[in-house]
Design a protein around this nucleic acid. Structure first.
Lengths: 226, 226
DNA sequence: ACCTGAACACCGTTCAAGT
DNA sequence: ACCTGAACACCGTTCAAGT
């Protein structure tokens, strides 16, 4: 009646790229970027490191696939019944929230060129920019700027999350940052000190959206001025 | 008269954090991010790996210091006799050009929170935003958006440079990307395909500046509308 | 105080050998 | 065709021992 001692050796399904990517996402979510190891992954899948290489060419591809898997789920659904602005906001927030839930995605997106999932976002944003009647010559610039901004925030958020020790909460972190800013040299950092207070009562998500709106207003400004 | 055979063992100056950082920058510039190794660095400095740890706490600090050293040189000089817009453009271009010359800086900035040199940029941009008469409550958002955009482009440029094999030139790279885009599914990627052509005759630097102008126009729009 | 370099505890990746 | 796991060629970092 007794199964063998030690860990339950369930090894039902065969290995597959999909299972490997799922396991990688799980590992990244639970133990972070530094915890994704071929050995750890192999143990998680109850196999040896070498087996993984049969389905995946290497760590770079694995990380890209894991990122794609997460981002892909946010770029679904139609946005036909919203204003272009709202549709763009929704797309941007989708990426933002995905990164908020999986900080390693932010780091990955920030250091990758436009791969499948972000290209998909690019396309969706592009259509909405067309809907805003932005002149053809300015469309690429407009979409690129939005994408760069989104990816910039992505990288920054990921960096902040990494700096943040797992236990500490955000409020303490922001308080500490605000305190540091407030102590900077008054001559060299006059402006930074004046906004240090705003840092404390700062809502990342709202701030992100405000930035999107700023760029959107710049984009529609172009149109209006012609 | 003959010195010893083998490499000239010049080992004049003693080790110092500064010399280590300089050597790290040199190594990063010549052999790239993956080439910065404590062993390679030690050899470069004609010493053992352990010696470096006497002056530097670890690789993270070393990379941050190397980045600071490069960015610091771009944030010098005054911008009192320019319009706020021009001063912001100059600051942004300074960061852009530094990253263009040292791609690893872009990767590093994109994955770091605001450390000394970028905080300095933040301050300088902030002062110009104040000069633009942006309402106090909107200043933080405006500067943050500009910084996120700059860092987003930084990360993207670094990623592109990394993807680009050292030998190949940019034109071929852009051509290849444009060709890929043009072949995407017409239904799924209608917009992307229409701008694929612009990708080919695309000037990174001009595009970057156009994005800055877009955000600037959004920022001044806020002011004008009140 | 500062340097040396062997040693430790890891990595990603490969590959002969198995099934 | 797919899996195994030892082995290779690295890493960053530490630390006893030297000067």
């Amino acid at each position: 009646m007794a199964t063998r001692t030690g860990r339950p050796e369930r090894r039902q399904e065969p290995l597959s790229a999909q299972r490997i990517v799922s396991a990688a996402v799980e590992l990244l979510d639970t133990v972070g970027e530094s915890g994704l190891t071929f050995r750890a992954l192999a143990e998680h899948l109850a196999t040896g490191p070498g087996a993984i290489y049969w389905h995946v060419t290497g760590k770079t591809e694995l990380l890209a696939a894991a990122t794609d898997a997460v981002v892909a789920t946010t770029v679904t659904g139609d946005d036909t019944d919203a204003t272009p602005q709202d549709a763009i906001r929704a797309l941007a927030l989708g990426v933002f929230d995905a990164i908020d839930a999986h900080p390693w995605v932010g780091a990955q997106l920030a250091r990758t060129s436009w791969q499948p999932p972000m290209l998909r976002v690019f396309e969706r944003v592009g259509r909405q920019v067309q809907a805003l009647q932005v002149p053809r010559a300015a469309q690429f610039t407009a979409v690129s700027a939005l994408m760069s901004y989104i990816l910039g925030v992505a990288g920054q958020n990921a960096a902040n999350t990494r700096t943040l020790q797992p236990g500490a909460d955000r409020t303490a972190f922001l308080d500490a940052a605000a305190a540091t800013w407030a102590e900077l040299d008054p001559d060299d950092y006059a402006f930074t000190r004046t906004v240090a207070g705003q840092l404390r009562e700062h809502d990342d998500r709202a701030e992100f959206l405000a930035g999107v709106d700023l760029i959107l207003s710049g984009i529609t400004g172009i149109t209006a001025r012609r």
